[in-house]
Computed example of a mutant assay.
Amino acid sequence: MLFPSCYCYPQQFCRLPQAGKPGSDNLILRYSEPCYNFHYMERFLKSRYRIGKQIGESPYSLTYKGTFLANDTPLIIKIYKRAALNSTLIQSMKEKVREFASITHPNIARLYDGDYGWQGFYYVREYVAGQNLKELLALKGRLDVSYSVSLISSVIAALTEAARRGIIHAGLKPANIFINQKGQVKVTDFVIQGEIKDSLPQKAQDVLSGQPYLSPEEALGMAADFRSDLFMLGAVFYEMLSGEPYRQTARRFKVIKEVPKYINDILYKVLEEDPLLRFNSLDEIDEALKKKLVAEKKSRFEVPRIELEDEEQPEVAQMKVVKAERSRSFQLLFVVLLAIIAGIAYALFSTMRF
């Protein structure tokens, strides 16, 4: 339960202490939403957490920086508005929060708590001191290849650990990939972000706003699954390497000329519009990145060859090879036929002489 110091309860009159008169209660307003929007009130959650300054807002949630009451350790509190929820969604979120809270992984921000109260569904997670990938890209434009591969490998490790427990992210983007002060990658906003995105109002808003990380199948109204996570991972990886968001408007994949070919091959496959044509698992992407299988040798999965615009297309080159082989075959056949005809003529000539 959220207890502001003004004793405000849902759908009731909000009484705020009058300035300069401690202990006085004056009727101020009737507020239709819970009082967590009043920034000047001290608020507590479950008698364990203090809610501090609001640091973020979306159409369906409010994000606050808070602290543990016991030791003032910083943390993040996210409260999802009731309008974005329904009973089925709430129950699913409760179950996944309980399971996810048991995960301890170096690349996943720890989830401490989560439940539904009159203010909406909330969860409490680890505070990551550092910067997120969105801020880093805004500062540097694009990242070098080696650092990008290292960073995305850490993200893959986090997604893989969650996937083993049947949890998908379904909301992956640079804003929820953090790099702490030690350079360690932390992925945030699992579970809740993904579950909220599956609600129809949020799907409609994401489509209308042209989210660059939204997978094509989600844009068509389909539910997100692990292949949607693969697409979002690819979109984030593409932006890290190119310095610009991946755009799905053009049907043709735009090659990043500054990176090795095997990385372009990986991006091509993971960003396939058809989810069935993407990689089969996160492990396959990780294997391709580590061993460069796509570029240097045949792997157990196939990735379409990618050509630069000024290079000859593989279909054209293959046709030329076929034509050359056919030409050599015809030449050889012609020589053989000439030899046969010469042999027959010689035999006839010999018979006529004798």
Rank of each mutant, 00 (worst) to 15 (best):
A163T: 01
L111P: 08
L233R: 01
L159S: 02
N180D: 15
D229C: 07
A235F: 08
G120N: 03
G141A: 05
S209T: 15
Y116S: 06
E239F: 03
G234I: 09
Y213A: 06
S242F: 02
D113Q: 12
L159R: 02
N132Q: 05
Q131G: 10
G120T: 08
I167F: 10
L233M: 11
L220N: 13
V236M: 07
E161P: 01
T160H: 10
A223P: 06
A175D: 13
F190L: 05
I192N: 07
G171M: 00
L136A: 04
L172Y: 07
E195I: 08
S215Q: 06
D189S: 09
R251L: 12
S148F: 03
R164N: 13
Q202T: 14
S199Q: 14
K203G: 06
D206I: 07
Q248L: 12
S153H: 01
K203E: 10
G114K: 11
S148N: 04
D198P: 00
R251K: 13
W118C: 01
V128S: 05
D113F: 09
Y116D: 10
L200W: 13
F231G: 08
V236Y: 03
G120L: 09
V185M: 02
I167Q: 02
L241N: 03
T249A: 12
K140T: 01
E195L: 14
E239K: 02
Y116E: 14
L136D: 00
L200S: 13
D206V: 02
G183M: 11
V124Y: 04
V149F: 04
M232A: 14
L136Q: 05
D115Y: 12
A162S: 06
N107C: 15
V145A: 06
S146C: 01
G243R: 01
K186W: 05
K186G: 05
D113I: 11
P216M: 09
L233S: 07
P212A: 07
V207I: 15
G210F: 12
T249M: 07
M222V: 03
R125T: 15
S199E: 13
Y213P: 01
K182D: 15
L214T: 09
G130V: 12
Y112R: 13
A235P: 04
Y213V: 04
A129Q: 15
H169C: 05
Q205S: 14
R142G: 00
F190E: 04
A250S: 14
S148A: 14
S199H: 11
Q184F: 11
Q193L: 02
Y147L: 07
Q202N: 14
E195P: 01
A158E: 02
Y238D: 07
L139S: 03
L241Y: 04
L172E: 06
K182E: 15
A129L: 12
Q184T: 15
L137D: 00
M222H: 13
A158H: 05
L220T: 06
L151F: 07
V124L: 06
G234H: 09
T188E: 09
L230Y: 10
